[in-house]
Amino acid sequence: MIIIAAQKAFITRNLKYVQVNEYLNRELTLAGQGAIEIHKTPMGHRVIIHAVRLGMVIGRRGRNIRKITETLEHKYGLETPQLEVRDLDEPRLNARVMAGRLISQIQKGFHFRRAGYALVRRIMSANARGCEIQIKGKLTSQRARTEVFREGFVAKCGEPAEVYVDEAVLEVTLKQGVIGVHVKIMQPDAVLPDYAELIPDVFGSPEEESEDALEPVDEVKVDETKGEVDDVEPTEEKDAVAVPETVAEENIADESLLKKEDLEEEE
């Protein structure tokens, strides 16, 4: 029974957080809301809103922020909610902000293909690793279809897709029907599993090794007028050749002495 009660408590809490996210997404669509964080503290709930237009989130004289606070406390049951508004570091790398801008351009009457390519160039100008944009619905006829715009590399599965890919899905209702937008952005700091970094100067630089490998060479002076070589110092090779000659001479001398001793003994 205790396990069932704990599971029910977790499900109820997460359901409440999902409802809060949906409410804030509806209220802050024009403000360029990019992300929402909800933290439970001893003093109550702390809600952090990341947006592009902070003035629209706060409202005139704080009217909008007070309205959101009262709604979160009375309708959704958050204990003494404390709202904090922060600016986004790079809106072009936030999938939700880019999807909202694409939706607004489609609502204003821009052609979907022109808006899609413009958004891809804007995302890639922020040094993104890659991006993918899907637009689905009745775009030009009564038959629904899907248009995809891609550039760069976007991970589809595994840890890189879960950690480094930011994605968002938004919808808009037009005269011809519902248009859906799905945006995926691969972050610039993404590190793939097959990436290998070479560490320089582990065994020394190649220049130092080449200098150590070179040996000093004896200088040879050549008289250009006579074409003869002067002052050539003896090398180790000549000495090495002379050694076996001396050994051979000693062997011959020993053999002659042995022959003389043999002759004397015979006499």
Rank of each mutant, 00 (worst) to 15 (best):
G44N: 03
Y76S: 03
I11C: 06
V217N: 02
E265F: 10
R13I: 07
G34H: 04
L174H: 06
Q19L: 14
R143C: 05
E73N: 10
T71N: 12
V220R: 03
R145P: 04
N25V: 06
N94E: 11
G59L: 02
K184T: 00
H50I: 01
V217M: 04
E228K: 12
L257M: 12
E236V: 14
V20L: 03
L54P: 02
E255M: 08
H50E: 09
G55D: 12
V148E: 07
N64P: 03
N251C: 09
K75T: 08
R101A: 04
V243T: 15
R121C: 02
R60A: 12
K221L: 15
G109C: 00
G180L: 09
Q107G: 02
R92K: 13
A35Q: 15
A115R: 00
H39G: 06
D218A: 08
E245L: 13
A5R: 13
A126Q: 02
E22S: 12
P244L: 08
T225E: 15
G32R: 01
Q134A: 05
L258F: 10
R60H: 14
D189L: 06
H74M: 01
R96W: 01
L78W: 00
T146S: 10
V178T: 14
P42R: 02
E79Y: 09
R129S: 14
D262R: 11
V165I: 13
E211F: 10
F112T: 03
K259W: 10
G180F: 11
T140P: 00
L93H: 00
D212L: 15
G77A: 01
V243Q: 15
E22Y: 08
N251R: 15
R46P: 00
V183H: 05
I135Y: 03
V85L: 07
R96K: 14
V220Q: 04
P234L: 14
V222M: 12
V222Q: 07
K40P: 04
F112L: 09
A155P: 13
A190I: 08
A161W: 01
Y76Q: 02
K221H: 13
P188F: 05
L83I: 13
V57I: 13
K108M: 02
L102Y: 03
A144N: 05
E215M: 07
L198D: 08
R46Y: 05
K75P: 00
L257W: 08
Q82K: 12
F112V: 11
I103T: 06
T69E: 12
R86P: 01
P91W: 04
I4S: 11
R46G: 02
V229M: 10
C157Y: 09
T69A: 05
R121A: 09
P193C: 06
F149T: 00
E207I: 09
S125C: 02
A118G: 14
F149G: 01
D254Q: 06
P244V: 08
I4T: 08
P234A: 12
P91T: 05
R150Y: 07
I179W: 07
A190D: 04
L170H: 05
K8E: 10
Y117R: 13
Y195H: 12
R66F: 05
L192I: 05
C157W: 01
V181C: 09
T12E: 15
V183M: 12
E70W: 05
L102Q: 01
I38C: 09
S256Y: 13
A190C: 12
V85W: 06
E171Y: 14
F110W: 09
